[in-house]
Amino acid sequence: MKNKMFLIGLVLVLTLFLYSCDALQEQGLAGSGATMFTNLKVGDGKEADSYLIYDGNAQDFYIALDDSADDLVVGKGSTVGTTPAFAVDENLVTTWSGGQIALVETVAAANVLTASECGKTMFLSAATEFQTTLPAVTGTAGCAFRFVVAAAPSGASYTIITGNSLENKLTGGINELEVDTGDDGPYHAAGDTITIVDGVAVVGDWIYMISNGANWFLTGQTNADGGVTIAQAD
């Protein structure tokens, strides 16, 4: 008898517990534009593709784990593995299947670059030439810039100077296409100013530089002798 009462009591307590935990729930999931998940795991460890499909009106895209290739694939359409844009394999090697559009900016006035612009190509383009200031080299390892003369300097020169109050961190040289004088290929080991010279540099001259965190290593090309100079101004 005692056991029976105990069991009845236990059932009552459990029932009350479950009922008290039975909160009012909204019977919908958060709609478009809302955050539905804090963490979202796609796939369950099985040998099968797992994917997200963006189901558009005219065009679909997918992000998928192609389990047969063990690749993360981003592509067009809704069939995993077909028409990929790029794939990342288990060694983090990325294979690009589509075209790539580089970051570019047409610059027409004085420009102070920051690390957030790393990778950009700057088209120098102005009737009134201007100065470009690089970010301080410390902390920019891997940061690269390319400068292309899109409007030939006329009346003044374009200059590119180092940041951090003209730190002497420019190292490298410029190839000159014209090789008939003794001053071909200017080089500097510790420069702070590049000048793209008025009346000499032409459209298409370019400079590329990349930082290792300690120096800006540069290279480039100019059409004429003296089209680009590298100096230590201070």
């Binding site: 479950l18 009922y19 039975d22 909160a23 009012l24 729930q25 909204e26 019977q27 919908g28």
Partner: peptide, 11 residues
């Protein structure tokens, strides 16, 4: 939105 409960009979 509608609101209900798991065990009990909600609204």
């Amino acid at each position: 939105a509608s609101y209900g409960k798991s065990w009990r009979i909600g609204p």
